[in-house]
Nucleic acid binder design. Structure first.
Lengths: 113, 113
DNA sequence: TTGACGTATTCCGTTATGGGTATACGATTG
DNA sequence: CAATCGTATACCCATAACGGAATACGTCAA
């Protein structure tokens, strides 16, 4: 088996920085493809391909307007990511494992990669 | 260019479900590899390989204990993901897109947040 | 020492990515 | 109708993932 397809879920779709950029742009409102092309500095076909991936995981929706296609964001599929991260949030805000951290740093003097 | 390496950042590392499972298990505390192998029902080499990826993005740290290697979670690298998601959270809580919100709520009457 | 244990690494094959480039296709304009 | 615009798709290539299987390596026990 190879790596899971980018269209498997939002986790995979969003792993690509360009696609995150696209979502960020669409967060500001509906945009035609060429707008995104201009802002991203990418070639049009690549943008269309990224949009396809995002469409397949329903992170964006399209609307035809004459010869343009207006894309807009649908943040809903990001929810599972947020939900998964929830369990880890307290680990940043509180200090559960100060001791662990210290121990780790101590034992990292000889272990390397 | 091919897809970005899984070790590029937490986004990519965490796109793989198995690795998320591993982190979930480690969230409960330090564990030796064989523990993870048992819980995941995966072959040992695959687990070691996943752990390597997680190590390379610093999502886990290791500590040698005799012939075992105890892995523990380091949630810090997840932060950029959460930070990125931040901009989208309000889209669930507030109603940017009224129509979508209504539809979403209708289909979510049994789940809460 | 030898052997068993715990874990990491290597090699293989299959699959799909993402960029580049060319092109197809629908809608609009002249 | 032809030409053009806006966008999607088809191909090609280089890269690497993931699982499977075999094996290497360090540590501990007998």
């Amino acid at each position: 088996m190879a790596r899971a397809a980018t269209t498997t879920d939002a986790f995979n779709a969003v792993a690509e920085p360009r696609r995150r950029q696209i979502l960020d742009l669409l967060a500001q409102g509906e945009r035609p493809v060429n707008d995104l092309v201009a802002q991203l500095g990418l070639a049009q076909p690549q943008v269309s391909k990224h949009l396809r991936v995002l469409r397949e995981v329903d992170l964006v929706r399209v609307r035809d307007e004459g010869r343009q296609r207006l894309y807009r964001l649908n943040a809903e599929p990001l929810r599972p990511i947020r939900d998964w991260l929830r369990a880890y949030e307290q680990m940043w805000n509180e200090r559960f494992d100060l001791m662990d951290t210290i121990l780790t740093e101590l034992s990292e003097e000889d272990s390397d990669d």
